[in-house]
Write a protein that binds this DNA or RNA. Sequence first.
DNA 1: GTCTATAGGCTGATAGAC
DNA 2: GTCTATCAGCCTATAGAC
Lengths: 216, 216
Amino acid sequence: MGTAQRRERERTELRGRILDAARDIVRREGFGALTIRKIADAIEYAPGTLYLYFENRDAIAQELSFEGFRKLLEAFAPAEKLEDPLARLEAIGRAYVRFGMKNPETYRLIFMEDPQLTTAVFKAAGDDPGQRAYRALIEPLEELRRAGRLLPGADVQALADTLWATVHGIVSLKLTCPGFPLTPVDPLVDTALRMLLGGLVGPAKATRAPGAPPGS
Amino acid sequence: MGTAQRRERERTELRGRILDAARDIVRREGFGALTIRKIADAIEYAPGTLYLYFENRDAIAQELSFEGFRKLLEAFAPAEKLEDPLARLEAIGRAYVRFGMKNPETYRLIFMEDPQLTTAVFKAAGDDPGQRAYRALIEPLEELRRAGRLLPGADVQALADTLWATVHGIVSLKLTCPGFPLTPVDPLVDTALRMLLGGLVGPAKATRAPGAPPGS
DNA sequence: GTCTATAGGCTGATAGAC
DNA sequence: GTCTATCAGCCTATAGAC
C-alpha cells in the first residue's frame, strides 16, 4: 500500500509525530493552546526542529484542519449510500452533528476559529473537499427536484445552505453555549430536520407536527 | 436623569472611557486583539491604572459582552410590538441576524468565543437577559399553541431552540465562512424562516415553496 | 538533523514612588 | 489616582555549533 508506506515515511521523518502531538493538544486544550514549544515538548524535540518540517505554526493548524475536514467527509459516507434522497439528506445532517459533538475542538478549529483557515480548508483540502461536501447536500436536493418532489420554484442552493446553517447552528451553539439551548442535541436535531425537511416535499407529505416526538 | 448622571460619573471616573476604548478595539480588531496595554494606549493612561477600575482583562470583556447582549435585546423591541405571533417570530429572527451581521466582532465575543463568557452573559447581564431573550421566542410560540395554530404535540421549547440554532447558524457561518454559504444573507434568512415557520402552523397554511422567491 | 542559545516580541499583573 | 518600573511569563522564529 503506497499510502501506508508514505505514512510510515512521514512518521519516521518526524512529520507524522508532530501532527499527532498537535492533534492531541488541540483535542485536549483547543487551538489557542497549540504552540510550537508545546508540540516540541510533547515529542521531546527542540522547538527549532519543527521548522524543518513546517513553515510555521499556521501550517500545522492548516494541516490539522484539512485532516479534520477529510474525516468529516468520511463520516458522510454511510449516509451517502442511502437510496432515498430525503433519507440521505437527513442522515447527512445527523452525521454532521454527530461529528461536531464528537470532535468539538476539531470542529471549532475548522469552522469557528479563523475565517482564513476555514476558507483555505474549503478550497484546498485534497481534491476540492468544499465542493464535495456541498455536493453531498446539493445532489439529493437535485434528485428530489428532478423527481418532482420539491415544490416548483424551489432554490436548491438556498435549501442546501439553510440545511447547512441549521446543523452548524446546532453544533456551534452546543459547543459555545453549554446549557443553552436547553433541548438536548438529539431531539433538537429531530425537530430541526422535521421542520426543514417536512415542508420540503410539499404540504401533502408533512403529516407530523414539528416538535412532536417521533412516535406521534 | 439618574442614568445620565451615573454615566457622567463613570466617565469622569475613567471607567466609561476604558469601556469605550475596549469596545472600539474589539469592533475593529476582534477580541483576540484586546489587551490591557492597547486600551491604556488608546486612553493615554498607564496600563496599571486600568486595574483600579477593573479586576482584570476578563472583567472588561465580560462587561462588553453584557452590553452587547443588552443591545441585542433592544434590537428585538420593534419586532416584539407586532401583534401576530408568527410575524413576531419572523421579525425577531430577522432582527437577530441583522444584529449579528452589523456587529460581527461583538457577536463573536458574545456567542462564539468563550463558553464561560457566554454562560456568564446568559446568567447575569442585568435582570436575567438570557431568560428575556428566550422568552422573546417562547412567548409567541405559546401564543400560537394557545390559539390552536400549532400542530398538536408540538414541543414549544424544541421549536424555540431550533429557530435560535438556525439564525445563529446563519450568522456564525457568514462570519467565519465568508463566501460559504453561497446564498447571500437576506435570501438565506427568507428561505430558513419560510421552511421553519411555514410548516409551523400546519400543512394547510404552507402555500409557498421553500426556497422560492417571495413573490412566487 | 538536531541541538543550544537567543533575539525580539508580546502578555497580565504588581510594587512602590509621587 | 496615576505614574514608572518591573517581574515573570509566554510566544515565534532564527543563527550557528555540533
